[in-house]
Amino acid sequence: MNNNVLCPECEAEVSLDANVMQGEILVCPDCGVDLEVITTDPIAVEIAPMEEEDWGE
């Protein structure tokens, strides 16, 4: 099974573990966005809601 997906935010190729589970949250290694695995067969991800952090500025 091909466990690579494209990040919907930046189109970086994201490699997923073979035993990835539906609902799992991943981080795109390029743009840092949170990705939620919405299906595992086929593998598909979507951008997950991210809580805005206070940057201290």
């Binding site: 930046c10 970086a12 390029d30 743009c31 840092g32 991210m50 952090e53 940057w55 201290g56």
Partner: peptide, 19 residues
């Protein structure tokens, strides 16, 4: 991404978390 991948001294910094 293309420029950063071609050049070993260039890094892309665009994070969503942290400082």
């Amino acid at each position: 991404r293309a420029v950063v991948n071609e050049n070993p001294c260039l890094r892309l910094v665009k994070e969503r978390r942290g400082v």
